[in-house]
Simulated scan of single mutants.
Amino acid sequence: MMQFRTKEEQVADFLREGIISGRYPRGARLKQQEIATMLNTSITPVREALKLLAAEGYVLGDSYRGATVAPFDIEASSEVQSLRILLETQLVKGAVERVTGEDIAELKVLAGEFAGAFDAGDNEATRAANYRFHHRLFEIAAMPQTLHFVQILWARYPFDLINRLSGRVSRAADEHDEMLAALIAGDSAAAMLATRRHIEAGYDELRRSVALDAASARGGPTPREN
């Protein structure tokens, strides 16, 4: 069962999804009144949500004067990846132990939304669906403190860059299927391994892409040519 969330937590989750999906690009200004109007709420929960997101590292600035989406720190991404693997594999283990048939049905729908958005060529919707799939999966574990730390790590991870890589979304959909299959089978070890591989695959593909771009900019041989 999904836990009750306050209005500010709902707004914060909406904004996290928007930032990770690229709906709100890095450096974009977040206007409280626009967000409140969009979500049919008052300014107060929006302001409180921005305070939460500032504490987690998603946004910079004063919630009263205005906030902007935080820039990505590529120097920290390797450490963040290691921490993601450590915490997210524990969350998926907890999910295997607590998952219900209703949860599995919901996750299948979310995985289908991810694949469907990709097939439709809607990149923003694809990244948003990816966020919802992972968040719901980890929410099942009922480990709110661990999930909170994972959300802090997500603020510092280059999801927008990884999901733009050619063919990455299709491969990620297959990796989601592996995670779901292990979850349905009740196999904690397989679910943890599939989660680790999923995290590593995206980051490794990004590193190779960055290396290729750097070699091309230098006019030298690409890493594959060495």
Rank of each mutant, 00 (worst) to 15 (best):
M1A: 05
Q3F: 04
E8G: 00
L15M: 14
L15E: 06
I19G: 11
R23L: 15
P25L: 14
P25F: 12
G27K: 12
G27D: 13
G27V: 15
A28Y: 11
R29K: 15
R29L: 08
I43G: 06
A54K: 12
A55H: 13
Y64M: 15
A67Q: 15
A67L: 06
A70Q: 05
A70P: 08
P71L: 00
D73F: 06
S78G: 07
V80T: 15
Q81P: 04
R84T: 01
I85N: 10
I85H: 06
L87S: 08
T89W: 00
Q90V: 00
L91M: 13
L91H: 08
A95N: 07
V99P: 07
G101E: 13
I104K: 03
L110E: 08
F114P: 07
F114G: 04
A115M: 10
G116A: 00
G116H: 00
A120I: 08
G121C: 13
G121A: 12
E124R: 14
A125I: 07
R127S: 07
A128C: 01
A128N: 05
Y131T: 08
R136D: 02
F138K: 03
L147R: 05
F149I: 01
L153C: 13
W154A: 12
D160M: 07
L161F: 02
R164E: 01
S166G: 00
G167A: 10
D174E: 15
E175G: 09
H176R: 08
D177S: 15
D177W: 07
E178S: 13
E178C: 09
E178Q: 14
A181T: 08
A185P: 07
A185T: 04
G186H: 12
S188W: 01
A189R: 11
A189W: 11
A190K: 11
A191Y: 09
D204F: 07
E205A: 13
V210T: 01
V210L: 04
L212H: 05
D213R: 01
D213N: 04
A214C: 08
S216F: 00
G219I: 00
P221T: 00
P221V: 00
T222N: 10
P223F: 02
P223D: 02
R224M: 10
N226G: 01
